[in-house]
Design a protein around this nucleic acid. Structure first.
Length: 148
DNA sequence: GCCAACGTTGGC
DNA sequence: GCCAACGTTGGC
């Protein structure tokens, strides 16, 4: 799950009450589908820092809620307001996430790109812009091995 | 700041 | 349904 650290960083999540915050504001249908259809409490996710000097995986968080309609889509004062998302027929979904830990050191995009085992990851595909995407168990294990 | 890649919008 | 225009993402 990607976030621009200057907007919301892993450190921000760690400082949030209970280390928990809503992962909201996702406005891409494919990413929405991954949240709505594939995420369940207890799932783990990598927190990826994008659009910064050293983009890469910064830490690990846990999904701690079922998917639910994204309240920011209903709020006219919110940057992510979408008048086409209505109560009873919500267009966008969010989940609550809880900080688990920071990696001992970030695993940078440049490092990930050097792993043939990871080349199938959407993250590494040319022109990819998905902000939420699945990680296979094998990819997850391989990435964690890069930490040590 | 640049630009490639992609998604969305809207006219037709 | 097509497709050009536009806006956004995100690495560099």
């Amino acid at each position: 799950m990607k976030s621009e650290p200057q907007v919301y960083s892993l450190e921000d999540l760690a400082r949030a009450p209970g280390g928990t915050a809503a992962w909201d504001g996702v406005r891409n249908y494919q990413a929405r589908n991954f949240i709505r259809d594939r995420m369940r409490p207890g799932d783990l996710a990598f927190f990826y820092h994008s659009s910064c000097a050293q983009p890469g995986i910064a830490g690990i968080m846990e999904i701690v809620s079922d998917p639910y309609p994204d309240p920011t889509a209903f709020d006219p004062a919110d940057d992510h307001y979408d008048p086409k998302s209505v109560f009873g027929n919500p267009r966008w979904y969010a989940v609550d996430v809880r900080f688990q830990r920071a990696l001992e050191r970030p695993i940078h995009l440049a490092r990930l790109k050097r792993c043939p085992e990871l080349e199938a990851m959407p993250l590494l595909r040319r022109g990819n812009r998905l902000s939420v995407m699945p990680v296979t168990p094998a990819q997850w294990r391989h990435i964690l091995e890069l930490e040590s």
